[in-house]
Amino acid sequence: MISDRLKSSLKREFDQSLMAKLGLSIALVIILVATFAPILATHHPGQTGHFDEEGSSYPPIGFDYQTHAWEDGDDGRERIPHTVQPTSEHVLGTNNLGQDVYSRMLFGARTSLLVGLIGTGLAAAFGVPFGLVAGYFGGRTDDSMMRVADIMLAFPSLVLAIALIGVFGRSVQYIPDPIVMAGFAEGMPEYAVLPGTVTLVVALVNWVWFARVARGEALAIRNEEYVKAARSLGASNWTVLRKHVLPNSLTPIIVLATIQVAAIILLESSLSYLGFSGTTLSWGYEISQGQDYLRTAWWISTIPGVAIVLAVISINLLGDWLRDALDPNIEGEGGV
């Protein structure tokens, strides 16, 4: 299915674009980190109580506290961070519960990627056939199917997601971690956590985008003469959909899927920030943990925030690269 022309187009676009290189490198790092989290982590992500001698969270390397007295002579003294280099076993510090932030970021990447990829897969698995059928058959079928999709779109996605979680309840699936099981990482959690309801819900919220794109493609492709030719050969609608309509509509769907991974990671972060995720090992949840300590221990919220930004940006850059490479009508921006 991947022709030589496509390969060379992907490569040319990649060579020309700094953004594509940046996006791909960051995305690869995130994928590697998420896969090998138990090996790369320094502490068990759930282990609490890592506080310094004064009972405060450890700051990241390169930062330290400074004791600050308020000017009005109040005896309430507050410790705020300043930049002195300590050596620390906690690279990115610890959070309000004394958990190692670095290790939690690694395991949080797993949650984000799992939800992002599985959620996108489910959304595409439902939305693409839905849209292809609507677009291919057209007429009344199309009208009624796309009205359903429009109704889905009319709800704000976050509200819809929260309502659905309310209906389904929060369930979490435990997936055995092969790396830990094989004994490569002593003392790490034996199960990776997949927030199942959230995955299902983000798919239910986002399948509409796949349906719309697939419908548009099918509408155009069903009038192509090769579809008429196939029908005059006696091909059934099922055969035409599978052999002609689906393969020829894949390009924009692949681009959309890439961007949807980012959108779903963002939605998952929002949900877990609001506490609907069902797992605490998530970037969004970490942000909500740290928001009360922004002035004194800024890293608890900021670091997961940066992680989310990096993940979303890198995936979007990948999406842009694919779009430019796959669509001959868009001239690449060239080197940035």
């Binding site: 008429k228 196939a230 052999k243």
Partner: peptide, 10 residues
Amino acid sequence: FQDPFSSLDP
């Protein structure tokens, strides 16, 4: 068909 460019699946 008339159009040999659109009558074959690319």
